[in-house]
Protein backbone atom coordinates (compact mmCIF):
# COMPACT_ATOMS: atom_id res chain seq x y z
CA UNK A 1 0.00 0.00 0.00
CA UNK A 2 2.13 2.89 -1.27
CA UNK A 3 1.84 6.33 0.32
CA UNK A 4 -0.27 7.71 -2.54
CA UNK A 5 -2.93 5.01 -2.22
CA UNK A 6 -3.26 5.69 1.50
CA UNK A 7 -3.62 9.40 0.72
CA UNK A 8 -6.27 8.68 -1.93
CA UNK A 9 -8.16 6.41 0.47
CA UNK A 10 -8.08 9.13 3.12
CA UNK A 11 -9.25 11.61 0.49
CA UNK A 12 -12.15 9.28 -0.32
CA UNK A 13 -13.30 9.33 3.32
CA UNK A 14 -12.83 13.08 3.42
CA UNK A 15 -14.94 13.58 0.28
CA UNK A 16 -17.62 11.30 1.80
CA UNK A 17 -17.74 13.40 4.94
CA UNK A 18 -17.66 16.65 2.95
CA UNK A 19 -20.53 15.44 0.76
CA UNK A 20 -22.69 14.75 3.82
CA UNK A 21 -21.77 18.04 5.49
CA UNK A 22 -22.47 19.92 2.24
CA UNK A 23 -25.94 18.41 2.07
CA UNK A 24 -26.43 19.28 5.74
CA UNK A 25 -25.59 22.85 4.77
CA UNK A 26 -28.17 22.84 1.98
CA UNK A 27 -30.74 21.41 4.38
CA UNK A 28 -29.94 24.08 6.95
CA UNK A 29 -30.37 26.65 4.17
CA UNK A 30 -33.64 25.43 2.72
CA UNK A 31 -35.49 23.54 5.43
CA UNK A 32 -37.80 25.35 7.85
CA UNK A 33 -36.85 25.16 11.51
CA UNK A 34 -39.46 25.42 14.26
CA UNK A 35 -38.54 23.35 17.33
CA UNK A 36 -40.94 23.35 20.29
CA UNK A 37 -41.16 20.96 23.27
CA UNK A 38 -43.89 18.68 21.94
CA UNK A 39 -42.15 18.23 18.56
CA UNK A 40 -38.79 17.40 20.10
CA UNK A 41 -40.25 14.76 22.38
CA UNK A 42 -39.17 11.23 21.55
CA UNK A 43 -41.68 9.40 19.32
CA UNK A 44 -43.34 6.40 20.92
CA UNK A 45 -46.57 5.55 19.08
CA UNK A 46 -48.26 8.69 20.35
CA UNK A 47 -47.38 8.26 24.03
CA UNK A 48 -44.95 9.91 26.40
CA UNK A 49 -42.04 7.46 26.82
CA UNK A 50 -41.93 5.95 30.30
CA UNK A 51 -38.59 5.02 31.80
CA UNK A 52 -35.09 5.47 30.39
CA UNK A 53 -34.62 3.81 26.96
CA UNK A 54 -30.91 3.20 27.48
CA UNK A 55 -31.28 -0.06 29.36
CA UNK A 56 -28.12 -2.16 29.84
CA UNK A 57 -27.53 -4.82 27.16
CA UNK A 58 -28.78 -8.36 27.45
CA UNK A 59 -26.07 -10.91 28.26
CA UNK A 60 -26.27 -12.85 24.98
CA UNK A 61 -25.03 -9.83 22.96
CA UNK A 62 -21.80 -10.11 24.96
CA UNK A 63 -21.58 -13.86 24.31
CA UNK A 64 -22.06 -13.44 20.56
CA UNK A 65 -19.49 -10.62 20.46
CA UNK A 66 -16.91 -12.89 22.14
CA UNK A 67 -17.53 -15.75 19.72
CA UNK A 68 -17.28 -13.24 16.84
CA UNK A 69 -13.93 -12.06 18.16
CA UNK A 70 -12.53 -15.60 18.20
CA UNK A 71 -13.59 -16.37 14.65
CA UNK A 72 -12.50 -12.98 13.39
CA UNK A 73 -8.99 -13.70 14.61
CA UNK A 74 -9.22 -17.12 13.00
CA UNK A 75 -10.07 -15.45 9.68
CA UNK A 76 -7.14 -13.09 10.19
CA UNK A 77 -4.83 -16.16 10.39
CA UNK A 78 -6.48 -17.99 7.50
CA UNK A 79 -6.16 -15.13 4.99
CA UNK A 80 -2.32 -15.02 4.81
CA UNK A 81 -2.29 -18.80 4.35
CA UNK A 82 -5.00 -18.46 1.67
CA UNK A 83 -2.80 -16.16 -0.38
CA UNK A 84 0.09 -18.57 -0.56
CA UNK A 85 -1.81 -21.84 -0.20
CA UNK A 86 -0.85 -23.11 -3.67
CA UNK A 87 2.86 -22.61 -3.18
CA UNK A 88 2.89 -24.07 0.33
CA UNK A 89 1.47 -27.36 -0.93
CA UNK A 90 0.03 -30.14 1.17
CA UNK A 91 2.22 -29.50 4.23
CA UNK A 92 0.59 -26.08 4.71
CA UNK A 93 -2.79 -27.62 4.07
CA UNK A 94 -2.39 -30.22 6.81
CA UNK A 95 -1.34 -27.59 9.36
CA UNK A 96 -4.22 -25.30 8.43
CA UNK A 97 -6.64 -28.23 8.56
CA UNK A 98 -5.50 -28.90 12.16
CA UNK A 99 -6.02 -25.22 12.99
CA UNK A 100 -9.52 -25.18 11.50
CA UNK A 101 -10.52 -28.43 13.22
CA UNK A 102 -9.43 -27.04 16.61
CA UNK A 103 -11.66 -24.06 15.93
CA UNK A 104 -14.56 -26.26 14.86
CA UNK A 105 -14.26 -27.99 18.23
CA UNK A 106 -14.33 -24.53 19.80
CA UNK A 107 -17.53 -23.74 17.89
CA UNK A 108 -19.07 -27.04 19.03
CA UNK A 109 -18.17 -26.15 22.63
CA UNK A 110 -19.78 -22.71 22.31
CA UNK A 111 -22.82 -24.37 20.73
CA UNK A 112 -23.22 -26.88 23.56
CA UNK A 113 -22.70 -24.20 26.20
CA UNK A 114 -25.66 -22.34 24.73
CA UNK A 115 -23.74 -19.14 24.02
CA UNK A 116 -25.20 -19.13 20.51
CA UNK A 117 -28.77 -19.58 21.73
CA UNK A 118 -30.47 -16.22 21.41
CA UNK A 119 -33.74 -16.44 23.40
Amino acid sequence: MSASTILVAALACAVGVIFVLALYGVVALLAPKNPYPLKDAVYECGHEPVGDPRVPFRVQYYGVALVFLIFDIETAFLYPWGLVARSLGWVGYIEMAAFVIVLLVGLLYAWRKGVLKWA
Partner: peptide, 11 residues
Protein backbone atom coordinates in the same frame (compact mmCIF):
# COMPACT_ATOMS: atom_id res chain seq x y z
CA UNK B 1 -52.36 10.66 20.67
CA UNK B 2 -53.30 12.17 17.31
CA UNK B 3 -52.22 15.62 18.48
CA UNK B 4 -48.84 14.26 19.60
CA UNK B 5 -48.35 12.40 16.30
CA UNK B 6 -49.23 15.57 14.37
CA UNK B 7 -46.82 17.64 16.42
CA UNK B 8 -44.03 15.14 15.92
CA UNK B 9 -44.28 15.38 12.15
CA UNK B 10 -41.54 17.47 10.55
CA UNK B 11 -42.48 20.73 8.87
Amino acid sequence: IVQRVYNQMAE
